[in-house]
Write a protein that binds this DNA or RNA. Structure first.
Lengths: 134, 134
DNA sequence: TATAATTTGTGCGTATGTATA
DNA sequence: TTATACATACGCACAAATTAT
């Protein structure tokens, strides 16, 4: 799984792998991800490397870490995670009055706009969505 | 170049190829891309298929098309195109007062926030930036 | 000014494969 | 299984815009 000769840092390979598995729904929200020790065993990596991967995922909001308990996918996921295909373009703008009405977007919240490879644009309220690039 | 047996529609393969070549700077802004007829010759595709690929790129702002002249990379590119690495997360929010000052962001313009695979976040004014996923 | 060549815009019909009812 | 709908892809013809001769 982790390829030391690929040129990609090991912590990044592990983070990428975990991010993909979270996006695939391997762990339901609230469920515990493998512990640091377990990840060390499964991957053969050191603790520093494993922790660095998890730190990156925490910063991205992909996982939550609770001291003494473990790592989990955020429970009530207030943000929808949109997986952007290669060939997409992501922009942002303020919502139109129509979008404010249909999505019930609060004042001061921008929209995330994903223009797919087919040129079709989808807009999501910025307080409830984020785009994952896998 | 275009592989009919790949399962990916031919127009999408062509669009992806052209998008990558534009991002690589193969055509400087204002320069003319190959005409529809040329792309038909080079790829062996029909005109409908070639035009569909270009339509997708137009919708994404990757190219501009001028009737009777041709297709070009937008001249004065008012938006900065950020290429997002796999493993990144894209969100949006309104700028902080500090960002408004340093970037000179007009009222009502949100920020595009790219959190890299390393967990480091970069924010760009939404009216001057968009994220490409290659 | 006029003409021709090139290029994109638009509309038509046809065929094939795939997903859905 | 059949029928329907949709996406993809091809070919053709003509209109409109641009540029060079």
């Amino acid at each position: 799984m982790i390829d030391p000769a690929s040129g990609v840092p090991a912590w990044r390979q592990l983070a990428d792998d975990l991010r993909r598995r979270v996006a695939a729904g391997e762990w339901s929200p609230g469920a515990r991800l493998p512990s640091e020790s377990r990840l060390m065993q499964e991957t053969g990596l050191g603790r520093t490397t494993v922790r660095r991967a998890i730190a990156a995922l925490r910063a991205q909001g992909v996982v939550e870490v609770q001291h003494g308990w473990g790592t989990r996918v955020p429970q009530a996921r207030e943000v929808e995670r949109i997986v952007a295909e290669p060939g997409s373009v992501v922009t942002t703008r303020m919502p139109t009055p129509a979008e404010r009405a249909t999505f019930d977007v609060p004042d001061g919240v921008p929209m995330l706009v994903v223009i797919g490879p087919d040129g079709i644009a989808d807009a999501y309220p910025g307080d409830r969505a984020q785009v994952d690039i896998l």
